[in-house]
Amino acid sequence: MLIEKILFPTKFRELSFNSLRTLLPLKASGLKEIVFCHIIERDDVGFVPFGGYMKEEEEKLREQARIRFEDWQKSCAEYGIKSSIIIEVGEAVPHILGIAKKEKVDIMIVGRKKKVAMGNLFAGDHTLQLIRRSKVATLVSKYMVNFEIDGSQYERINENIFDLPLIVMDCSEHSERALNALISLNNTVKKAVIVHHLRVAISKKHDAGELHAAEEAVKDTFDKFCMRLKEAGIQCETHIGAGEIVEEILRISRERNATMLIMGTTGKDRLHEFFQGSISHDLVKLSELPVLLVP
């Protein structure tokens, strides 16, 4: 997987541009083009009760978006990155997914870039819909977040997001895809943290031998992963997690000062997610770090 083309949908909320700036280092990993897109919600201009369509309002919003994008394009040009602009009217989620497919982008940037209110989850409904349905990798960007750990309040600015990514691995196919995505960032990422979660249940009655065997197997897997990363020029450190997987990943990411999370997704639909839950979606909602999901 090479990240050559990014789709950057935006509502021009506060800090959107800051979020964009965090992506520009990807130029070193082969980023060639950013497609900016803004979807004017149909309900903002159409279906005026008993009125019709506000064409002038649409044109005004289009012009506003174009002017803002052209300003952003200058920043891209300074980095030697091409850019294009798409402005459409309609429902945001299907239009963004449609553009991602049509433009054949490698990755899509989603999520709120504004300051998140205390106690709120780090992802809104649109973001969750997009990551649930996207066929391409999605980076849930969170430029500035406020969050709480053990009753203490923190504010975090995710500026250098590629400094120390944490990748969540097991031996599945989707982990392999996540690893390939990380390797494709080799000229941007210098070091990564690998976390493997032990699926063996730890209880009073656990079989020590079984646990030991599982740990050994993980170490072998770690060695293989680290070897591949080192070949790509990325140093790595490894950690084994046990217990509640989401909490473990959050704990390790904070202890190791990770700057983003990377994981593969299994493509569960809404029904499966409802009954079985989704680790990746929980991480998107609960972690204060940007999350790269690779389907």
């Binding site: 159409g46 005026v48 009760p49 008993f50 009125g51 019709g52 369509y53 064409k55 649409e58 009217v89």
Partner: peptide, 22 residues
């Protein structure tokens, strides 16, 4: 008129959105 019945303005809105002058 456009305001005589609710679907009138919805049809008008969709037509104008897709480029049909009304």
């Amino acid at each position: 008129t456009y305001i005589g019945n609710a679907p009138n303005f919805m049809v008008r809105s969709i037509a104008e959105e897709t480029g049909t002058p009304m």
